[in-house]
């Protein structure tokens, strides 16, 4: 198996998981695919090192998060669309959680959003999250605290969800 085969096998084995992380970070299918494309271009360039004694999974995850944060720092021009905004409809409670959370996540800073995804979806520890974001554990704690507070203030209806004992424990 040559290096390209190894890279191909690595990505294809984790494609759905990578796509889901990218989608959670960006909130948009096209942006998620673009994010993945630019990150894979970086990963393939480092593959000979990563496939030796490196950790390709951790490197790729870190590249995804950092590239996403870097993108969000750039000004995003308005894009014309002829699509009419969706009208309201009735949803069940779970669907409502999802819709409200998606809207609130979009208003977090890129780093806050990344912390939420890494801590509560990827289930990384504070130390692992700090490693991915290349910041201190204290910074992760603080970002997490502010992110949850901002979610509560943006969407008070998420209060019960964010007051779950496990989450309170995590942020203590």
């Amino acid at each position: 198996m040559d290096g390209d085969d190894g890279f191909r096998e690595f990505v294809l084995a984790r494609q759905q998981s990578l796509m889901r992380t990218a989608y959670l970070l960006t909130g948009d299918a096209y942006l998620a695919e673009d994010l993945l494309q630019s990150v894979l271009a970086k990963v393939v360039g480092q593959w000979h090192k990563l496939s030796g004694d490196g950790n390709p999974e951790a490197y790729t995850r870190r590249a995804l998060v950092n590239q996403y944060i870097s993108w969000k720092r750039r000004p995003r021009p308005e894009v014309l669309s002829s699509n009419v905004p969706e009208h309201g409809a009735s949803y069940d409670e779970v669907a409502l959680d999802r819709i409200v959370l998606r809207g609130a996540l979009a208003k977090l800073t890129p780093k806050q959003r990344a912390v939420i995804v890494l801590r509560f979806w990827e289930d990384l520890t504070e130390a692992q999250t700090a490693e991915v974001l290349r910041c201190s554990i204290g910074n992760v704690k603080s970002q997490c605290h502010h992110a949850l507070a901002r979610l509560r203030s943006l969407a008070p209806e998420l209060g019960p969800m964010l007051s779950d004992p496990e989450i309170v424990e995590v942020t203590r």
Binding site: L24, A32, D97, W121, E166
Partner: peptide, 14 residues
């Protein structure tokens, strides 16, 4: 947690 569930639901939309 419900947060994890909701994040899972959003991720599943990918």
């Amino acid at each position: 947690t419900r947060l994890r569930d909701a994040l899972d639901d959003i991720a599943a939309e990918a």
